[in-house]
Design a binder for these strands. Structure first.
Length: 277
DNA sequence: GTCCATGTTCTTTA
DNA sequence: CTAAAGAACATGGA
């Protein structure tokens, strides 16, 4: 569910609400969302203050005041919300952190809650480690030359290459389809067959698509909610994603839906012609 | 009952 | 051997 714009929206909201607050209690409802599974989370977290919160790919990285870190990945259905303890605890709430009230600007005791019905997401204890191993560059800042080098290394369909987090970290099914449409590139084009002009178009399309999605607070198809439980708005502006059969917003011919790598892929055959060479 | 889903990782195939 | 394709994971909604 959550791709870069959704994850970034949550991080931006979370930062001012949890930064510098002390964790006074930890409730882990089930262990299998925690990695390594035998991590003693209460011992590591209780008494610590939360420092910086940042995003890397689709990961939300929390740095503690002892410079140790953990990250949360939301998987398909994960949510992170900040709410008062009196709010009813919804099913599939796997982790709750009680955050101390601060005295200065009157701030109530609040809880940071992680819910994830499908449990594709989870919490990863990092310690002092860096989590960049095997992760591709950030799509918002990757240089065209770097993008060209990454894509030249593989013959896979460009759609599959862009979904690979070791190529680019943060894109998912929605933003790959939307970026390829904006760039006018057919999703089945072999990644190493893109010419210089297509690479430049794709580089611009990825950044423009992500920035627009960020302005609209991400896409809510079904599960995604921000840190206050509010839906995103960008789904209303999708041009091809989940619009199979609907008219292309540019040429009005029907958007096509195919299955690629076991996942639905949407494109306009007219605006994204298949050309190799 | 069936099919489908925003992600990742392990297994199988070429 | 490597790269790529496919299956599996768990739950809920249509």
């Amino acid at each position: 569910m959550p791709e870069l714009p959704e994850v970034q929206t949550i991080v931006t909201m979370l930062a001012p609400r949890v930064q510098h607050r002390r964790i006074v209690a930890v409730c882990l409802a089930r262990r299998d969302v925690l990695h390594p599974i035998d991590t003693d989370l209460p011992a590591l977290l209780v008494g610590r203050r939360i420092g910086e919160i940042c995003r890397r790919g689709k990961r939300i990285i929390f740095t503690l005041d002892d410079s140790r870190r953990f990250f949360v990945h939301l998987g398909m259905s994960g949510r992170l919300m900040v709410q008062p303890p009196v709010d009813p605890l919804l099913p599939h709430t796997h982790l709750t952190l009680d955050l101390q009230a601060s005295s200065a600007p009157k701030q109530p005791v609040e809880q940071l809650r992680f819910r994830d019905p499908r449990r594709f997401g989870g919490i990863w204890w990092m310690g002092q480690a860096c989590c960049d191993n095997g992760m591709g560059p950030e799509p918002l800042t990757v240089r065209p030359r770097q993008l060209a080098n990454l894509l030249a290394r593989t013959t896979r369909a460009i759609k599959n290459a862009m979904l690979d987090q070791s190529v680019l970290a943060g894109l998912g099914n929605i933003y790959v389809d939307e970026s390829l449409f904006a760039a006018g590139i057919h999703p089945l084009t072999p990644a190493n067959a893109l010419d210089g002009q297509q690479i430049r178009a794709l580089n611009r399309a990825i950044k423009a698509t992500l920035r627009r999605a960020l302005r609209h607070r991400g896409s809510t198809l079904r599960d995604y909610r921000d840190a206050d439980g509010a839906a995103g708005n960008f789904q209303k502006l999708h041009r091809v994603y989940a619009r199979g059969g609907a008219p292309c917003p540019v040429c009005k011919r029907p958007v096509e839906r195919i299955v690629l790598g076991g996942r639905s892929t949407h494109f306009c055959p007219n605006c994204q012609p298949f050309t190799v060479g």
